[in-house]
Design a protein around this nucleic acid. Structure first.
Lengths: 355, 355
DNA sequence: TGGTCCAGTCGAATCGATTCGACTCCCTCC
DNA sequence: GGAGGGAGTCGAATCGATTCGACTGGACCA
């Protein structure tokens, strides 16, 4: 089914050919009058409006989006660039997508999905260069991100959920992973933990310069140094299975560990399992905390003590910013760095004596 | 941010105004020649092609999607109608979305997302009537579904993931919930269980005529009757919390229960919790089985014995069917009813003596 | 009475592509 | 040497909307 070339029966069925001209003819007015009646950009008499509306209702007319987009130079559509298809979305990413779609719908904007970041970036190219969208929301941004460069170069308005290593050159909404992970470590240190591990996201993602991965690392190292702790780090793929084996290995190689801080949501339930397997009770014998979508942290069992990422709000904010940039691409870039507090739930507790 | 009226600086920056005319001028040929050079629909000399390509590369030209869509009468975009935004997608639904997006990308089609089914169906209306898409993939279909009616009436090609009560009137890909749940019950009966509960999806969804809900019910009742079992049914919202309290209530009211069959993925982990809470071991004291996305059933802990829904494949098949319908809307409807076998994993076992 | 203004309307140009018909060479074949 | 045909190209029409300039009456004012 590669590059399927669609060529269908030449024209749509004739019934469907209700265009503004047909409406005009039946209402006995000119096409421009119909247009003005619909947009309200020039006065049209009540009587004429009513006649036009009647015909429109009768024929079920709706303006052709392509024609309108062509003339107006905007599509009333935004692009949402998501991680490559086939890869499971984490709960947080899903939250972003849902809230972007929702916010866009509220603003009467449609959302064009573009899986990108993998090989098949034809989709991204189409979206960016074909003027298919008025602006783009970009997810899963790396420190050096070619897609950001492409967008900046193209002049298409865009907003990142996440930021590159030169954050002043773009508009974005992001979470302060560095501070949050540092706080998590401090929280653990306050509870008396001396040995703490950072469970990062996948090695590939971190190697590719995934921002949160690097920032979490920096925050972790800083806090560990500040508190004079013993810290170890590990990367872990985005699923429970990986979380389980990751923590299993960590426990084997560092039996002194009593706590974990993580930014890898999807791995947490697996870590729970590894701990149970090792006969360790949470939070009595072992503490876990990290950064996670609020909804998800609450519903986990046991509920995760974590910095609650308001994924729903972030998508909405990104769309807001994007709408502003679309309305006036020349305005200064705006940034929103969130540092949600840690919600104490059921997974952290005092280190055992001698821990 | 309601109905935000986008009006930006009148024209895009002039640099961006590379259109086919500009290419033609610089290459010293007519616009039609540029078009033919790009589409290959008429012969163009190698020399001319090369000159045009040079100019195109230089200016980074890409044809305007709206103009092309207007002239060609197709947008190279498909709509994907998902359950109302704000509502969490189940893992299975997420699998459908991912595979639809993936399959569409492989066919060089873009995907326009439309949350629908709730109140704000402006999005659905826009997608359907504004000729923004060449076809639609519809999810979460009800037995009587107004969206199906709308689509049938509009003549826009569409394919359902799921089907209505008059399935011959549309093309679809679906899972045979009735048979599968019946099989689950038979499986439990074979293991000696005499008391079995069906945990359905939310009461609202079922009341709204959600197909799988009703078909699962039918299959359950049939199998229960065939095997002379004692069966009870319950509806349950799509989350772990609800699953927990649902099963808790079931156990309280029907202490004789020893097994559950379910189509509610999202509730399963909550049911595990309720069982643990009640001191019941799975599968020693209690069996659970149902219909779930394969990937998800495997990764659950303990892994769920279930009929594995190949969500990834289903989305791809739906897109395939849709592409065919778009290419030739007059062809007969095609249907694909899947009945995946039950994969035995860790959650079903023989009923205890006297159970 | 004549000028100004505004509501209401129309015709034509425009957006950026595709596509049809026609035209020019040039080659080949009787 | 004229007919036939194909390669290569061009100009103009077209898709369906928006929008600008211009026109017509009628109201209002001096």
């Amino acid at each position: 089914m590669n590059r399927f070339d669609l060529r269908w029966s030449p024209r749509r069925n004739e019934r469907a050919r209700v265009n503004i001209g047909e409406i005009a003819k039946r209402a006995g007015v000119s096409r421009s009058t119909v247009s003005y009646a619909l947009t309200g950009k020039r006065p049209v008499s009540e009587e004429t409006k009513r006649r036009i509306q009647t015909v429109i209702d009768e024929l079920g007319y709706r303006p052709n989006a392509s024609a309108r987009a062509l003339k107006e130079g905007r599509t009333r559509t935004i692009g949402l660039v998501i991680p490559p298809a086939g890869q499971r979305l984490t709960d947080m990413q899903l939250g972003f997508v849902a809230s972007v779609v929702d916010a866009a719908a509220r603003a009467d904007l449609d959302v064009l999905l573009s899986p990108s970041g993998g090989e098949h970036d034809r989709s991204f190219e189409r979206v960016v260069t074909g003027r298919r969208v008025d602006g783009v929301v970009l997810m899963e941004i790396r420190l050096e991100d070619e897609r950001v460069t492409r967008l900046q170069h193209s002049g298409l308005p865009f907003v990142g959920i996440g930021r590159t290593s030169r954050p002043e050159d773009m508009s974005w909404v992001d979470i302060d992973y560095e501070t949050l992970i540092a706080r998590c470590v401090h929280h653990l240190a306050d509870l008396g933990h001396r040995h703490v591990a950072l469970v990062n996201r996948s090695a590939e993602l971190v190697a590719a310069g995934y921002g949160p991965g690097h920032r979490a690392q920096a925050g972790f190292e800083r806090a560990v140094a500040e508190r004079g702790l013993h810290g170890v780090q590990a990367c872990c793929a985005d699923d429970a299975q990986a979380g389980q084996s990751c923590l299993r290995h960590l426990l084997a190689e560092h039996p002194e560990l009593t706590s974990v801080a993580t930014i890898n949501e999807a791995a947490v339930s697996g870590m729970y399992r590894a701990l149970a397997e090792a006969g360790l009770n949470v939070p009595r014998d072992f503490s876990i905390t990290g950064v996670a979508a609020q909804h998800w942290a609450e519903n986990l069992h046991p509920p995760l003590t974590a910095a609650d990422v308001p994924a729903d709000e972030m998508g909405a904010r990104a769309v807001e910013l994007l709408i502003q940039r679309i309305a006036d691409p020349a305005t200064a870039h705006r940034h929103l760095l969130l540092t949600p507090p840690i919600s104490l739930r059921a997974t952290t507790g005092p280190a055992r004596a001698g821990g």
